[in-house]
Design a protein around this nucleic acid. Sequence first.
RNA 1: AGCGAGGUAGGGUAGUCAGGAUAUCCCGACGGGCUCAUAACCCGUAGACCGAUGGUUCAAAUCCAUCCCUCGCUACCA
Length: 662
Amino acid sequence: MTSPPLLVTCGLPYTNGPCHLGHLRTYVPADAYVRYMRRMGEEVVFVCGSDNHGTPIVVSAEEAGITPRAMSERYHAHFDQTFKRMNVMFDHFGMTDNPANHHRTQTIVAELEKNGYIYKQIVHQAYCPKCKRFLPDRYVEGTCPHCGKPARGDECDQGCGKHLEPGEIKDPLCKVCGTKAEFRDQEHFFFKLSEFKDFLLPYLDTIKGTSNAKNYAIGWIKDELHDWCITRTLEWGVKFPSRDDLVVYVWVDAPIGYIAFTEEWAKKTGNDWKRFWCGENRVTHFIGGDIIYHHGIFWPALLKGAGYGVPHAIVASGMVKVDDHKFSKSRGYVVWTNDDYLDKGLPADYLRYYLLAYTSHTKELNFSWKVFGERINNEVVNIFGNFVYRTLYFAQKEWEGIPGGVVDPAITAEIEKCLVTVNGYMQEYEFKGAVDSIMALAAFGNTYIQTNAPWKLIKTDRAAAAHVIKNCVQITKALALLLEPVMPMTAQECWKQLGYYDQVANHPISDATHPVPEACIKAPTPLFVKMEEEQVKELDDLLQKRVAEANKKTEKIPMVTFEEFQKLDIRTGKVLSAEPVPKSNKLLKLQVDIGTETRQIVAGMQQFYKSEELVGKDVVVVTNLAPAKIFGVESNGMVLAAGDAASLLVPFRPVEPGSKIR
RNA sequence: AGCGAGGUAGGGUAGUCAGGAUAUCCCGACGGGCUCAUAACCCGUAGACCGAUGGUUCAAAUCCAUCCCUCGCUACCA
């Protein structure tokens, strides 16, 4: 029985910003994987597309004074071009706003409804009277109903981390204009995710891909699964069937895009998309580690509920750091694919190599220009490039091409050993291991030519020298084939220099042990150009400059007027008692005498003070801070303290509790 | 807070499930040799209290317990 064809997808780039290194961390390995599997004789289709829906794009488009569609098309074209420049070659790169996806999404939602997985419910939703629109998800800020901390519309981001359904948030404010939002009743549709627990557990147990994705998803399943509200009140998006006032949540139509893009590809090429999506399949999703939940839980449940096949594998890449700092556009720790790399004339192959060879696919990748330059020069240029060049240079000089004769079985065995090792790593999505093994073969080549020294041998035994070079040429051929998934442009150039006129990408990797025929070749040129120290420094300086500029911006703290300051009621108080808040490591519950009354205040200073140390101390309290529940304990004010170790501010000379601070 | 993934020389890694002796390999640093090549290769040197503490054991990077730190879920995110 033959396996079903492979369908490989990448997480969809969102069309409100340009392509950066973080994107490539997922796309380059996916492309290498696809290329490799094709060289191994697999039927592979590789699809992706841009993610166009959701509120952030509406807001960005409004700011830019264009329509969301125009905004999406702009970045869609940008990603499409950038991927091509990086030689990430999708068979199809679609848009989630295209008709195929509107159709597929509506079909799937209808199927879910028919199968009883969707129900209606009235929710109280935040509405901004000033902007005259409902405020979805992240465009509402307020207080978490669970822990009382500041939260966003869809998630308690600073407190307990719980997911919030629309309408749950307290004291909602419009993020755009800051107006107090109202609640309005609205009919929404929910997906019964909770019913899929029994399906998901055994399914996730057998899912292929990287362990980080699998473990993370299983961890979530063990907890309770909540139903998902899958509609939003927005103009931009895929309309919910028979409801003109609602669109589906972007996380519904975005993954369905994978199917729609397959359909578009199938239509273009005369194939049947159902082979990939119905029944047993080998759908493999390459994603960033931040969206495992959606791909490991929500998406398989959606597919299952609508009667489609479920994903075969989820491959989640680790995140990217820049110069040991968290990747951040606003802080300047970012590397733009075009501006910072390709437009500087740097070859796509170098970056592809670096991304694949730096560390394990699931681990964090810490980018730095210095290490980039070092590794390119030492590994790619010196070891790999030098071996190929010295081999072909010598062959051309002495024999005007590839000499005749047979390849040593020991050399063939070494190549075969390498093929097996590389395959083992590729099957496990361990791209670093695969690249290291390829480089080890190049190093083996260098050692072999070195110890056999054909340049000496040729003075006494021309045939023996030819035999050594014949072997080196064979290793070069193997390297070109193996390198193609990693550095396609270079591999093709190497292939050409070996005297072939066709595409290396059209050959199976197993050709690596097929002998290179005796032939004339042209004088070779080095495959790579070294990274100059100055060039590396220039690139690094640019990054440092951007970080410095970003720092300046963030240092600017806005001024407050005297009137605004006066709104704060700050007084002295005396701590009457202090006890730890149950189940919390950091919180203390304080009773503080502020003159007119005794206030209960929760303060995050358990790790810095013992209860006895605090009782009787005079402290400084903001008394008119809005009350909040923290860990279920009401807090009516804030005790002022300085720095990370919470050094308490205390009166210099004794004062009565309740003295106003001015 | 919870749940996941991590923490091994300057960087990157192997080893951890199935405990054994000087902790692997690659890059970088230093010294020497060799030289067909954008140089590689060979020989040698330095560099790791294997995140911390405690426990089990004749023996712990590995097993157990507790804790610390980083990252993700959780702005700008793949």
